[in-house]
Amino acid sequence: MSTLLFLIGEAFVNLRRNALVATGAILAVFVSLALAFGALVFNELVRVNTLQWQEGDHLIIFLKDEGGPVAHSELLSQINDYPEVKNAWYLDKAGAYQEFLEIYSDQPALAATVTAADLPASIRVELEDISTYQEVQFRLVGHPLLRRLSVFSEGIERLLSLTGVLNSIGIGLVVLMGASAVVLIANTIRMAIYARREEIAIMKLVGAGNWFIRVPFIIEGATVGLLGGGLAAAAVFASHNLLERIPTDILIRFQADQGFLLSRAILILAFGGLAGFIGSSLGLRRFLRV
């Protein structure tokens, strides 16, 4: 017990002596883990956003006022008969105003300039299969009531084609950056061993066992990994907070679930510690033959 405390103490004294190199390693691990963590979060954002589209409104058909609710409901029943359409529903001017107020609830000045009459009624369409949105688009081309078809379609298409790629890139980044964190720490530890080789020789001469010499280095590596991982988690939390301020009505939601963020942050932290452990073990290999 007192031996372990002693070895932990040794590790921190050594870290302090080696502050410059250790700081460099911590920052480098921070960058690679932040990238890895960022990739995880980005993937989650993509998943959440595409999920929203899968479940929610896939198309928004903004209508001209002509004909009024009667003509509108006629079109609605037509659209509901399209084979591609799973469900369509009507949002009248009052509903649109309500939605507008919700979206801009944090900007009352803007809301005050708009009345229900200024906003178009619309038909919201949920598709059976969102890749068929263009068929619906074609069916509606030139319809007299059509004011504008929602912009979501392009976003959907682009994101759908991207999610697969983004996911692979994200996973690749996580693996690559994780590996580079391990290598970085292994290198740092090797440098620390080199710098202290005379002291190590003396320690061995006095009868220090291999583990007595190894443990402080391993603690050192794990600390570097944990600090780098901690910084990475903090940085991703901070940038997520910034992203969250972007209003949510535009194409993409920038919020990831806090629970998700927290669990991934713990994962990244644990990974940092593990990378430190593996890295320092690698750095210690080959050395320490008596």
């Binding site: 003396i202 001469l205 009868g207 066992g209 007595f212």
Partner: peptide, 21 residues
Amino acid sequence: TWRVPYLRRTVGTIFQDFKLL
């Protein structure tokens, strides 16, 4: 090899260059 540290604990050593940490 793993027993060598135990050997060294039964043998005190003194050198010309002191070998202090």
